[in-house]
Amino acid sequence: MEAVVSLAIGMLAGSGVWLILRPRTFQVIIGLSLLSHAVNIFIFSTGGLRIGVPPILEPGGVGDLARHADPLPQALVLTAIVISFATTALFLVVLLAARGLTGTDHVDGRERDQ
């Protein structure tokens, strides 16, 4: 499972980095979204990759990372997802405003060789 998860993170991050270096605003926003997915999976993986272990203690039970999943990375991922959702929406607004005001979807607001 480690190999699959790390490959997924690597592919998402690689595609994301390539896309945010592209000149079109839409590519940049997709790149940022892919990167944030990669980062979310990465945060999740810092809690250890186990299947079928609950992050919640049972009454009377003692917290033990051998039998429980680490709940903190999951909480961090939730927060990160919400925040990246909001910032992506905000970036979308800026993107549309830039498109409307400059008449092009180039990130610099004008085409390079014109």
Partner: peptide, 28 residues
């Protein structure tokens, strides 16, 4: 202003993602 903001937002969103990577490595 919008053009400058576009760069500003993109740079800062990327740096926020880096922040998350660093924080989760430290936590790990």
């Amino acid at each position: 202003r919008v053009r400058a903001s576009l760069h500003y937002v993109a740079v800062n969103l990327t740096s926020s993602l880096l922040f998350l990577i660093g924080v989760s490595m430290i936590y790990g």
